[in-house]
Design a protein around this nucleic acid. Structure first.
Lengths: 106, 106
DNA sequence: CAGATTTTCGTATTTATAATACAAAAGTTA
DNA sequence: TAACTTTTGTATTATAAATACGAAAATCTG
């Protein structure tokens, strides 16, 4: 409980960054834009569903559009529970980082 | 390539924090002390071995002791490659966090 | 020095997460 | 309604993490 996979954490963050424009495809392209590395769309969708089931996201379908074809988007937003877990994880890591003074390698 | 599981990241950090005293048991107790949540020793050992194989750690056996019984400790230290991956991941996440202004929940 | 005790490492298995392959839904346009 | 576009979705495989269990290697005690 209260543990997050690395992809799960990334997706939570990207959804927050994208605010009202967070859906499968935009999450993928935002990640690619920022990290120059792909996450496949299906991988993102399974994470979104999993985290929605855990109560970290809610989702709803967007409306139809006159501008483009294609299926409707499913938009995701983070819940307070999701935000809480996400920031806790980050805080814990910051604390560890603050303890590292001068790294010594092997 | 260049992707880190969440436990892998935690263990990398703990090894750096523990400096010259990083071995299976000390890593487990340091984590428990800081997060009030257990990681089992075997879980830690498998991660340590996996990351050593990936070139992120090196290890060596410690000497015998007159103070205590028991098997010798295997000490781990991080490599430059390990540090590089670890800090890259953290930097990427910081960048995402910096883009989040006012979180809005569902 | 044999047997008990301590401390740690290690392996084998199961479960959970992530990645890949592939398909189908749901919209627009001609 | 056929062709095209965009997105969601499911089924399978691969990788990472957790659990169950055991063995190695040291000291201590009679």
């Amino acid at each position: 409980m209260s543990n997050l996979g690395s992809l799960e954490e990334t997706v939570l963050l990207l959804v927050m960054v994208l605010e009202s424009e967070a859906y499968g495809v935009s999450i993928a392209s935002e990640h690619f834009k920022r990290h120059d590395r792909e996450i496949s769309i299906p991988a993102i969708h399974t994470v979104l569903k999993r985290l929605e089931k855990k109560g970290y996201f809610t989702s709803k379908y967007g409306g139809v559009s006159k501008e483009r074809g294609g299926r409707r988007k499913r938009y995701y937003t983070i819940t307070q529970a999701g935000y809480k877990v996400l920031s806790q994880v980050q805080e814990d890591r910051q604390n560890l980082w603050s303890l590292i003074t001068r790294p010594s390698f092997s």
